[in-house]
Simulated scan of single mutants.
Amino acid sequence: MDFTTRYKADAIKDSTIFITGGASGIGAAMAERCAELGAHVMIGDINATLGEALATKLRNSSGNPHHYFIETDVSSFTSLSAAFTTALSLSPSNHIHHVIANAGITDSTSLTELPPSPTAPCPPPPTSTLTINLLGVFFTTRLALHHFRLNHHTEDAHLLLVGSMASFLESPPMMAQYTASKHGVLGLFHSLRLSAGDQAPAQFRVNMLCPYFIDTPILPTKAKLLLAGVELAKKEDAVDAVVRLCAVRAARGRCVVVAPRSAGGVQEMDWEELKEIEPFTGRVVGLIRAGGTVRKAVRLVGDVGRLAGWMWVAGALAAMVMGMTVMAMR
């Protein structure tokens, strides 16, 4: 799939798109772009304040009254099932054409953080990230397949799973939950890509989006500090990839990576690469790491200054200069 070619983005006009985790971050950016193109957007999220505000904004900016917020907890099948039912009732066509399983969180608690004493009771690890990022996607997938059966054979029935570059990469213990959940989403995609099951609609299609790190609320400060100086992927590239996958009905079984632009930007991982992902990820990560040293150093100072404060950066630089002076005097 060539992401440099033009496509008819307005092909999603009048379609109903249900986005989980659609009240903030990439999900909100997806919602805004889809509304601009004339789609009817259903925002499923647990954050009612952000969700209602975004739905109101979309209605006012587009002049389309069919943008709604639906309070949704993807970790609860009951809540998610009710959200799908509501989305169907609010859809002008009484159908849902695209479901974007985007809801996700992260937790920087390390799996290897254990009690000081080996004789002390070991508390259970946090599992909220696994529950929302993986179980929530399983729930979303099941309900999407169920409701897609209502669609007429001429209508689209598209499920887009949002994974991550963490679906392929190794990660430190502080990202164990997140990485495990995104590996799980990739495994689900593998299964759905081969067969959606006997009860799935014939026209059902599935794709997967795997962004590299993007500066959104899901990225914790610890991770931002670790990534200081590293070029991030662009939110607008991810959104354009989503719209393309929704608009181009020939897009089936595609796994699309959104890398930093210096590492190729939006690109497809083909099926052979999906079988052996190490060559692909090695190539992309190698390109990311190959960025100019000076450019990365400048970005590092800017990122750390923004996150930790410029006084902290000034103090660190002063200490560095003092240390170099002392070394030179020896």
Rank of each mutant, 00 (worst) to 15 (best):
I70H: 00
L90F: 10
G51V: 08
G63V: 10
H153Q: 13
A157E: 10
A120R: 06
N47M: 12
T106P: 01
R59N: 09
I43D: 04
L114T: 10
T109A: 08
N64S: 13
G104E: 01
D156R: 10
K57E: 08
I105S: 14
E170K: 11
E155H: 05
G51D: 05
L169Y: 05
A166D: 00
A101C: 06
M175W: 12
I105M: 14
E155L: 11
D156W: 02
A48K: 15
A157H: 03
T131F: 08
S81I: 09
P121V: 13
S164K: 12
E71H: 11
A120T: 14
A120F: 07
Y68K: 11
S128R: 13
L50R: 15
L114E: 11
T119Y: 10
A39M: 00
P65N: 08
K57T: 08
L150E: 02
M42T: 04
H66M: 10
P65C: 02
E113R: 11
S81T: 09
F148R: 00
H147N: 12
L54M: 13
T129K: 11
L88K: 08
T86N: 09
L90S: 12
T140V: 00
S89H: 13
G51K: 02
N64K: 11
F139E: 01
I100R: 02
Y68I: 00
G44Q: 08
D107M: 04
I105K: 14
L169K: 06
P118L: 13
N47D: 15
T109H: 07
H147P: 03
G163K: 14
L90N: 15
I43R: 03
T141K: 00
F77W: 05
I96N: 02
H146Q: 13
A55Y: 04
H158A: 10
A53C: 09
G163C: 13
P121Q: 01
L145F: 05
S108N: 15
S167G: 13
H153D: 14
S117Q: 07
T119K: 09
A157N: 08
T154G: 11
T49S: 08
A120S: 15
A144L: 01
V137F: 04
N60A: 13
H95P: 03
N151T: 04
S164Q: 09
F84N: 02
K57V: 03
Y68G: 02
V41T: 05
I96P: 03
H67Q: 12
I70L: 15
T106F: 03
I132F: 03
I43N: 02
L160S: 11
